[in-house]
Amino acid sequence: MVNEVIDINEAVRAYIAQIEGLRAEIGRLDATIATLRQSLATLKSLKTLGEGKTVLVPVGSIAQVEMKVEKMDKVVVSVGQNISAELEYEEALKYIEDEIKKLLTFRLVLEQAIAELYAKIEDLIAEAQQTSEEEKAEEEENEEKAE
């Protein structure tokens, strides 16, 4: 009985550790998604408001340099593995939107995995309670026999 309880505790701890890891991963995904959405919004704003105008581009964290946005028909986008490619404006928007969709899909998978782990924990708790109740019933029965 003691060993069984220890096993259940260890299993629960392991599941909780997995859940925490998955939650951390979801946090990182959310940060990435937010960044991509910001990029998307900025591109759209530059297209409508910045074309042909002077903008300030940060140089480090303390200075900015004036630059003029001639046209927004081309965008250089990071496509992974230290590679960036020149895309048409609409292509760039679509590429970023597709990346966001992929990340949201993956996020959903992680959330489902967390739900499954919680279900396993609940099953273990129920199992522990059932074992405890059975032992109490057995003890009571033994006491009655002794009397």
Binding site: V76, V79, G80, Q81, N82, I83, S84, A85, E86, L87
Partner: peptide, 17 residues
């Protein structure tokens, strides 16, 4: 990434960091 690059039309600028 390779497949994506192949899908791009010719003349597009590409950069390696």
């Amino acid at each position: 990434v390779i497949d994506f690059l192949k899908s791009l039309p010719e003349g597009r600028r590409v950069y390696i960091e």
